[in-house]
Design a protein around this nucleic acid. Structure first.
Lengths: 150, 150
DNA sequence: ATAATCTCTACTAAAACAATAGTCATTATA
DNA sequence: TATAATGACTATTGTTTTAGTAGAGATTAT
């Protein structure tokens, strides 16, 4: 029930790029520092995200990465699936395995895994990076207000 | 977002024992065959389940395992947590890590992981092995009916 | 020209996972 | 009471995944 650091880094980085949407590129270096991510690892994560069509890049001096689509059009679910593979907790939850499943008793679990999958998907497929940007800004504003009202 | 074979085997086996509740012990051998689980691996799984207080055993000739509590009092969630550890998708979802979390932007993800956790927990904590036994019996009845109505 | 940047492939260390092996302890029963 | 059938326990192994590191190459603003 865990997600990998690779996904974690990918999501953090996409949020960072979403916050810079339409404000030019951000270098791997800056992204690595900001997210406290090992530079060389982030390099690979970004290449993966580029293959997935989530980001694009500009090479050479003052190059960097930028979001390839509007933040509002990228959901968390897409990204997680692209990095981690299927979200289902057990292979048995997928249609194909079910058809091959001979053991009736075990198959009562299929309904459970399906419920878990559906519940999870409901969350991650309904949140876009656009929404996360709004929330992050709201959090900043909150802490800003706090400073002023103390 | 996967659960391990160990958990899968543990759950299957507990269901099997729940189906035999109050009908004496079941040997590891029978459980292994029924669930198509490597004998020696199942041995360890059962020891774990015993430590967790989910099953108890009788040693010696015609010994075996049996459920330590009524099926209706054991939830899937308990078992999964005991075998897999915390269900949260990322450490950041736990209270302690949150308090230590300095990065405001990343923390918008905390709400997401919490929602995923809550949704998952809702499912696995509300289903007991008693309920699974009912469902398994219903499935058997269903397929039985089918044979007769063809 | 060159320095800053992304690109690509390969490698490695450590942990987790799944399974296997072997020896010991207990007990029903012949 | 000997013995065969069972569970208890610990150690070991092979594989895969994860997380990270290394280094050489390509591109481009200045």
């Amino acid at each position: 029930m865990k997600i990998s650091y690779k996904s974690d880094y990918a999501l953090k980085t996409l949020l960072e790029l979403a916050l810079h949407y339409n404000k030019g590129v951000v270098s791997i270096n800056d992204l690595a520092k900001k997210g406290d991510i090992p530079y060389k690892f982030l390099e690979q994560v970004l290449l993966t995200l580029k293959k997935g069509g989530f980001v694009d890049s500009k090479r050479g001096v003052s190059g960097g990465y930028f979001l390839a689509k509007a933040p509002g059009t990228i959901t968390l679910g897409e990204v997680i699936r692209f990095i981690e593979g299927p979200i289902e907790p057990l292979m048995c939850a997928s249609k194909k395995s079910y058809d091959e499943c001979k053991d009736f008793n075990s198959c009562v679990f299929r309904d459970i895994w399906n419920q878990v999958y559906t519940a999870t998907a409901m969350v991650v497929d309904s949140v876009t990076f656009g929404e996360l940007v709004r929330r992050a800004n709201a959090k900043h504003k909150e802490s800003h207000d706090y400073v002023y009202t103390i």
